[in-house]
């Protein structure tokens, strides 16, 4: 058996699996998005842009996603950066690994249960009840954009901390010493050395969080209470409740296209800031 045959055989199962479970289904979604709704709830194949023409009907979902996803990403960045800086530069090396693991681990646990925890905390008997005790009354937190934002930050903070930590950890600490030896104030060292050198980490973190937020369903469903909904919530409604596959497919295709365009523009901007291609990687 030549090496070539062997490699083909090794790749065959994964390749076939990706074909059947990824490429064919995505193609079906693409084709259906040009179809028409069948009376029975299925799709009549056609070539019409009617579904895309109806997209404005779901404009609110796109608007919410495209405002709360960037705001959520930025808030997560602002909270994550100081923590990543602390872990990479200031933390005791002995504790570093365990502290880092403690940040990453929540990301991999059930987002469902972690969002549920906030229903609990933000609901009537949680934080609002505590505020009541100290005299601030009538605060409503659950089912507001704020609740969704808290859920987003809580859910995606670990994913933001990690890449920033990696880029700060790689940073040569002697640069910082040199800078302060040469009389630079600490904020100046930060602005001129630390921050620019951590841009790749910031870029990766923001992109990861943003991509995941674009397709978010659970957090708005649980903390937004039907008032704050994302494209994901519109998709669940279209496919599982009203069973409008053709229109739903058009919404899904649009979501992916909007995501790809945003990510491409974003990557361009980042390269212009001077990060190299290898640095900005989602893997």
């Amino acid at each position: 058996m030549t090496q070539r045959t062997r490699n083909w055989l090794l790749l065959a199962p994964a390749g076939a699996w990706f074909m059947v479970m990824l490429i064919i289904p995505l193609t079906v979604v693409f084709i259906f998005s040009f179809g028409e709704r069948a009376p029975s709830g299925g799709v009549v194949l056609a070539f019409t842009f009617e579904q895309y023409g109806n997209l404005p009907a779901r404009w609110a979902a796109f608007k919410n996603t495209m405002t709360l996803a960037p705001i959520g990403t930025l808030s997560a960045l602002l909270i994550a950066y100081p923590l990543a800086y602390f872990l990479a530069v200031k933390a005791n090396p002995k504790w570093k690994t365990i502290l880092l693991v403690l940040v990453i681990v929540p990301f991999w646990t059930s987002i469902l249960i972690r969002s549920y925890a906030w229903i609990f905390l933000l609901g009537g008997r949680g934080i609002p009840a505590l505020l009541d005790v100290i005299g601030i009354e009538g605060v409503r937190l659950i089912n507001t954009p704020f609740a969704v934002l808290v859920g987003i930050i809580y859910g995606y903070l670990p994913l933001m901390v990690f890449p920033i930590y990696v880029s700060l950890d790689k940073l040569d600490k002697r640069l910082l010493e040199a800078s302060s030896d040469l009389g630079a104030k600490s904020w100046k060292t930060f602005l001129q050395i630390t921050l620019p050198l951590s841009i790749p980490g910031i870029a990766t973190g923001c992109m990861l969080v943003f991509i995941l937020l674009m397709g978010e369903y659970l957090i708005p469903a649980m903390l937004g209470g039907g008032k704050v909904f994302f494209v994901g919530n519109a998709l669940v409604d279209l496919f599982l409740q009203s069973r409008n596959w053709a229109y739903g497919s058009a919404v899904a295709v649009t979501l992916v296209v909007v995501m790809l365009i945003t990510v491409t523009i974003y990557m361009r901007l980042i390269y212009r800031l001077g990060a190299s291609r290898e640095d900005v990687s989602i893997m």
């Binding site: 479970m21 990824l22 064919i24 289904p25 995505l26 193609t27 079906v28 979604v29 259906f32 799709v43 397709g215 998709l235 496919f239 596959w245 739903g248 497919s249 899904a252 979501l255 992916v256």
Partner: peptide
């Protein structure tokens, strides 16, 4: 989208 695609596919 993976979920949707798998379902209708």
């Amino acid at each position: 989208v993976i979920g949707i695609a798998t379902l209708i596919g």
